[in-house]
Design a binder for these strands. Structure first.
Lengths: 332, 332
DNA sequence: TTGTACGCGTTATCAC
DNA sequence: GTGATAACGCGTACAA
């Protein structure tokens, strides 16, 4: 590979000149479109190699009107949940020849709309993960983002891939109630979080299903530290449902430090089933969410919009109870 | 925001026409370059708003000759180490107005060169994390990637941000030897991994420093499962240094299942200090690596190359011993 | 300060 | 099968 005299990278024109053909032919050879005389094709390829020619992505994008790139907007790249969604999208998209642009709002709610818009400008479509954004802001934003698919949010007319956290929360209560627990604490996520609201809705449903069970909601958060802090606020609950596995981890650690037996004195169930859940002590019982699949399905929906022009049907995942060692029969 | 009759997005020409000014003026207003008559600027902005005009990133990139985007190539987005590097780069880059394109080779060594090349075509520069790529392939690839910075790899002439794993491994032995251990097992990472080689070099050094200590290397891997499997191969070692925290987690779990006391019977030290290390049981002693900083420094080096044209000086991080509960005095 | 006009590197539509 | 040439949408010298 040689660099051109000027020091600039070779362009299609340079190749055309050197191979004594037209730019059109070079383009055809490079893209394998149409059919070109084998002899000429060989000559062109030789020159391409010699000059180290690489098509400019920018020029291509402009000419084609597409970037073959999708954006993924997440609130926090440090969260295993969003990491896996990103990973799922990335893998699925790469199989289709698309690349992924990440945009991490770093929990800065105010920046999200602009961040998403900016991402959309550079991409053909966007996967939006914005659990805290207000419904109002969301519906304002969506029109300018299309094609777009929502993860764990709903908005009329926009394809979505969501987890049925309500069903998950309800199932968690079923599990605990079945073990004899009558006082359950829910360590709530951020109040503004949509997925927290969905869990709360599920708990509401569970209350009517289990009249004898008292379910109290304790403000907590979404991180390990939040979970650790919440250990003191458990009251007389014999079981707790954590907003997610991160919170459960923090709780478990604090409980251990405080000498509280799990599940002897308190049972704990998490949400998500992150990779480390099974390595917690005791191994964490949790409502498993297929996080990578979430990303993969989001990609599918995106592709349907991009190429098919079809707004994909909503996808709903139901969390699956994974019983490990952190839950057990209530002590009496 | 209105959509143009044709259904197409508004272009700078549409705005110019509607505002009765030239495209140049619209461009100036939109970019805040040069100074434009306030009245005209207002008029233009009004039209921009009305038409919902958004500059085309593709056209901009082509005209400017830069994309304001950097690529990050990683071998496995599922690995906390690489996730944090990505995060570090993303956050640092976004502060400078750059976006990040992710490329996950999914451990497919063969695809890495093409993946990196492809990423580079779409970006102004690339951060390459490729621990397994052969030196040969790496040096072949680098020229076509510049500006590029290497993470945990070295190659003449290319800026690098690396962790001194040799010093880390050596320090781990110091710690263990200080606790009286004389038979230490090293759970080796992938043989082709550069960072594994560096750890091995550190162990070699440690051998001469601690003549009385026997250090054996056991083929293992880089994942939790690998660590779990290795539990049976420990022999009579009283302490083990795991390739990374993931491996240590697997080992800890297997040891617990086997009823082996940690650190009573066996001490365990990991590498990286991933977030969950402190929540392992027992809390994991580990050689901490500032993973996010790694990404941030990689970005700094990239920026120096992109804008300054200066090849940044190598950055070297030394792992710090974090003593928790998984290591203790040798039993006698 | 504002407008004209050209260049950025490809792709795609035509004739040939 | 191949070659001109017009888009693609924007930035920017240069001229006015």
């Amino acid at each position: 590979m040689t660099v051109r005299p000027g020091g600039r990278a070779a362009t299609i024109l340079d190749v055309a000149l050197a191979a004594a053909v037209s730019q059109a032919t070079v383009s055809r050879v490079v893209n394998g479109k149409s059919t070109v005389d084998p002899a000429i094709a060989r000559r062109v390829l030789a020159v391409v190699d010699e000059l180290g020619y690489r098509p400019s992505a920018s020029a291509r994008n402009l000419a084609r009107g597409s970037t073959q790139t999708v954006g993924v907007v997440v609130p926090d790249l440090g969260n295993p949940m969003f990491q896996e969604v990103l990973r799922g999208v990335t893998q699925a998209a790469s199989a289709a020849g698309y690349r992924v642009l990440v945009a991490d709002s770093q929990e800065s709610l105010a920046d999200e709309p602009e961040l998403a818009t900016e991402a959309r400008r550079r991409c053909d479509a966007v996967v939006l993960v914005a659990p805290r954004m207000s419904d109002h802001e969301l519906s304002d934003l969506l029109p300018s983002l299309a094609p777009v698919v929502l993860v764990n949010r709903s908005a009329a007319g926009t394809p979505e891939v969501v987890v049925d956290y309500a069903a998950g929360a309800s199932a968690a209560v079923d599990h605990l109630a079945g073990l004899g627990h009558r006082r359950i604490a829910y360590l709530a996520g951020p109040p503004s979080s949509e997925s927290n609201r969905r869990r709360l809705a599920g708990l509401e449903r569970a209350r009517s299903l289990h009249p004898g069970v008292e379910i109290t909601s304790i403000p907590c958060g979404a991180n390990v530290e939040d979970g650790a802090r919440a250990a003191q606020a458990l009251g007389d609950a014999t079981a707790v449902i954590a907003f997610n596995d991160l919170v459960a981890f923090g709780l478990l650690a604090a409980l251990r430090d405080a000498g509280v037996a799990v599940p002897g004195t308190v049972s704990v169930v998490g949400f998500d089933d992150i990779e480390f859940a099974r390595y917690a002590t005791p191994a964490l019982t949790t409502m498993a969410v297929p996080r990578q699949l979430l990303g993969a399905r989001a990609w599918d929906a995106l592709l349907a919009e991009i190429e098919g022009g079809t707004p994909a049907a909503p996808v709903l995942f139901t969390p699956a109870l994974v019983v490990r060692a952190s839950t057990g029969e209530v002590a009496r």
